[in-house]
Amino acid sequence: MAIVEFKNFSWNYSGYRSKVLRNINLSINKGEFFGIIGGVGSGRTTFCSAIMGLVPHLYPGNIDGELIVDGLNTEKSSMSDLSTRVGLIMQSPDTQLTGAGMNVEEELSFGLENLGTPRKEMIKRVKKMIKLIGLESFKYRNPFELSGGQQQKVAIASVLIMQPEILVLDEPTAQLDPLGTTLVFNLIKKLARKGITIILNTQKIDYLAEFADRVAILNDNEIRKVGKTREVLTDINLLKKNRIISSDFTQLSNELINRKLYKGALCMTLNDAKEMISKVKRG
């Protein structure tokens, strides 16, 4: 069942002649882990903003076609209605924090306060979220005192607390160090297992290879390819054409195949690579 449906969707920001998203036709299923990859300036961030409804509600511009998210037409629904269905996390940990939370608990409850949730219910959900992100010992700390990775986890929890069906992550680890990146991806993995629909835009192909069900390539403002993760990420020529660097594992296996040292399929994940190496050794 499709939960996000782009129907011939186009968008251009006011004041710009060319469209940032052009004729997008795509449906993402409920419970799916969907990856977005593509070059710089290809419209990926706008793609994510569109699902949240920021396009057209925050950014001025024109929509052609339509985008249906969990039964709501984004153009016709309000941001607050959409916010209980979609959670959006963006790059910068600092600006993901609202600024109004004096401690982690209050930061988490911000969205619920805005929706008028009764206090008892808020306390219950905050407790659950803090446990989920594993920040029990930091709950009275000021969110701005946390590390980037912790801040991003708080940001994710602060939208999850509104119990959305869909979580959209727009390069959530782009500004994090390796440790922070691991923290955030561990959380994402945990959420994927809970059955939340996850749409992840990232440059970190290795993580997508591990988690994603399907991957779309968005380049030059158009969808170039949608397919099963393995199908897309091991298509070296396709990736190269779209200026995406394929995974080190894929490149390595490709090199070995070219040198006639290995005769299997192209690798995508660390596990694939391990298998390949054991085969190469035996061979």
């Binding site: 920021l54 607050s80 916010s83 979609v86 963006m90 993901q96 929706l115 009764p118 206090r119």
Partner: peptide, 15 residues
Amino acid sequence: TALEARAFSAKCEKT
């Protein structure tokens, strides 16, 4: 954008 994603502009009574 972060505030909008947290229903900042919701019209209901806030708690």
